[in-house]
């Protein structure tokens, strides 16, 4: 029983990290169709934001709480700059976008090395996130519970924005029909920028969260970016609830495989599972249905 609860929690925890990272991609890749390889570096930027904040403020608790909105802001601003300078000239050319943003990703990694040095740095976690909480005889790490709560909060906030606000309506309208959106009076340029800001900002938040689990280095984002793309593809392009389910299913599968085999074997099994799944259901868990294409 303990093992089951333990693995379940490990899977949930893994899933919550995946969803935090994939949520931003669900917007920029899922909704806008932009393959942004530098998304991982926005995660790294968020993590270094937490590091810098702690250097300035000292107290680990306060700096974490401030780093979360700051990470969002920094990730978001980097995203907007990237969109304005490069990506907007390449809409509808996914291969060019992929190559160019990959280049940007390498530049940003080097920039991080120049600023913070090549070795990893550590961000201390606040005292209230050290240790664990006992549930049903199983010790659950507080930091992981915090990330789970943060992921839930981010998903809830993003879903609410997309569903209920005028910005959310504009984003959905532009995604569905860019030309029609312009002609009903929506500035698609401004909507693109805002979408990119939010998507990239969420990557920054994910980066802050990752500092609670391990050390921070220039290649932090690269470790997660492929998994995040997988989550979005399995979930169904453009579907946040799809990404949500995919993240937790993949997280659970990974922890189950990892328990019964090794970490590398788990990765292989997971990839095989995804390949089989996409053979059966190439459109992902959710797909869009309407009476007509309109």
């Amino acid at each position: 029983m303990d093992v089951v609860v333990g693995q379940l929690f490990a899977g949930l925890s893994q899933g919550s990290i995946l969803i935090l990272i994939a949520l931003g991609l669900a917007l920029t890749f899922g909704q806008m169709g932009v393959i942004n390889m530098a998304h991982g570096e926005f995660i790294m930027a968020g993590a270094y934001t937490a590091y810098v904040m702690q250097g300035i403020l000292g107290d680990a608790g306060i700096s974490l709480l401030i780093a979360i909105p700051m990470g969002f802001l920094i990730g978001g601003v980097m995203g907007v700059i990237l969109e304005a300078v490069l990506i907007r000239h390449m809409y509808g050319r996914p291969l060019d976008t992929l190559l160019v943003t990959w280049g940007v990703s390498l530049i940003l990694q080097q920039l991080a090395r120049d600023i913070f040095g090549a070795p990893n740095v550590d961000v201390g976690s606040p005292s209230w996130l050290q240790g664990s909480v006992e549930v049903g005889g199983v010790a659950l790490a507080s930091a992981r519970l915090f990330i789970l709560a943060l992921a839930i909060a981010c998903v809830a906030a993003l879903s609410a924005i997309i569903r209920f606000t005028s910005l959310g309506r504009r984003v959905r309208a532009v995604v569905q029909n860019r030309e029609l959106a312009e002609t009903v009076g929506i500035s698609t340029r401004r909507t693109d920028r805002l979408t990119f800001f939010i998507g990239s900002g969420l990557a920054g938040v994910a980066g802050v969260a990752l500092t609670l689990l391990g050390s921070t280095g220039p290649t932090l984002g690269t470790n997660y970016i492929v998994d995040a793309f997988l989550v979005v593809v399995v979930g169904g392009i453009g579907q946040i609830r799809g990404a949500l389910i995919a993240a937790f299913v993949l997280g659970l599968l990974q922890s189950v495989f990892q328990y019964s085999t090794t970490a590398s074997m788990a990765k292989v099994l997971l990839l095989i599972a995804i390949v089989i799944f996409l053979q059966v259901r190439p459109q992902g868990i959710f797909s869009v249905r309407t009476r007509s294409l309109a």
């Binding site: 309208a173 569905q176 029609l180 002609t183 009076g185 869009v288 309407t290 009476r291 309109a294």
Partner: peptide, 30 residues
């Protein structure tokens, strides 16, 4: 185009196009 809408032009394109995934009400709210 969106600036022309702001100046008082409105366009009903051919083929009854709408934002199919938005509800009727959301299409108007937009």
């Amino acid at each position: 185009p969106h600036q022309r809408v702001a100046r008082g032009m409105a366009y009903v394109p051919q083929g009854q196009v709408s934002f199919g995934q938005l509800t009727t009400f959301e299409n108007l709210q937009l």
